[in-house]
Design a protein around this nucleic acid. Sequence first.
DNA 1: TGCAAAATGAAAATGGTTGTCAAAGTCGAC
DNA 2: GTCGACTTTGACAACCATTTTCATTTTGCA
Lengths: 129, 129
Amino acid sequence: MTTRRDAVHDTLRQSEGFRSAQDVYAEMRQHGAKIGLTTVYRALQALADGGHVDVLRTDDGESVYRACETGEHHHHLVCRRCGRTVEVAGPAVERWAETVGTEHGFTEITHTVEVFGTCSSCSRTPRPA
Amino acid sequence: MTTRRDAVHDTLRQSEGFRSAQDVYAEMRQHGAKIGLTTVYRALQALADGGHVDVLRTDDGESVYRACETGEHHHHLVCRRCGRTVEVAGPAVERWAETVGTEHGFTEITHTVEVFGTCSSCSRTPRPA
DNA sequence: TGCAAAATGAAAATGGTTGTCAAAGTCGAC
DNA sequence: GTCGACTTTGACAACCATTTTCATTTTGCA
């Protein structure tokens, strides 16, 4: 039975950027969904395990999720103001990580790369505080 | 008065890899230091703010700290088994992040890049579980 | 239809981190 | 050397995202 999981997935898909589990939960409830917080967490985890959504950690340690368009390995360019996210590929980075790891005798190399910035529409609006 | 902060910094310096606040606290107590957990957190934060130590988040959301050898911008190659860490520079990555951000109209670009792998000595020992 | 296995969710537990606040330490002025 | 303002400390409580527990509901399937 995956109806709940699909509901979570759908909610995520409607979002431009990364959303926290609590966000997703709040939004689903707002839209009248009868779902528990526990289930949202479980669904999110399952989706992440299955590679259907990407996860990353905010600076304050919260996990945030996003339904990405491609199943391929990619990275994110995230607006630090509005959260809008662009998926980007970076073959150069992949190679670099691999090389750097190998040079130091490391194997089974993985990497995390995220790019943050202020997107064009946000940089037009006055700065907060 | 920075004796406590220095003590924390020293403890960190004696470590090969990233250590959590709780780790540092435990170790300091073990060595007979009279210090409170709160103070360790505060010292770590102050050091991080001042750029004297690097911070990153583990997969389970814990903040881990490391006294790095250089104040320059750099990244880390971390052994996922033993935690040993090598500081690496990646001019190519810096440029790539900048380019990718700019191409999409983003400004004030920053990035996080960490590389994980299994170091040579760990890959010689049998795998856990 | 019946029933065992899986899913659900409310509430409690967990655990890293932060806030509170009174006690202790620091330092300059006298 | 002593007094008092200011800072630092740390025990403890508060926070809060996440996980666990466990009783109930739902589902899959014979």
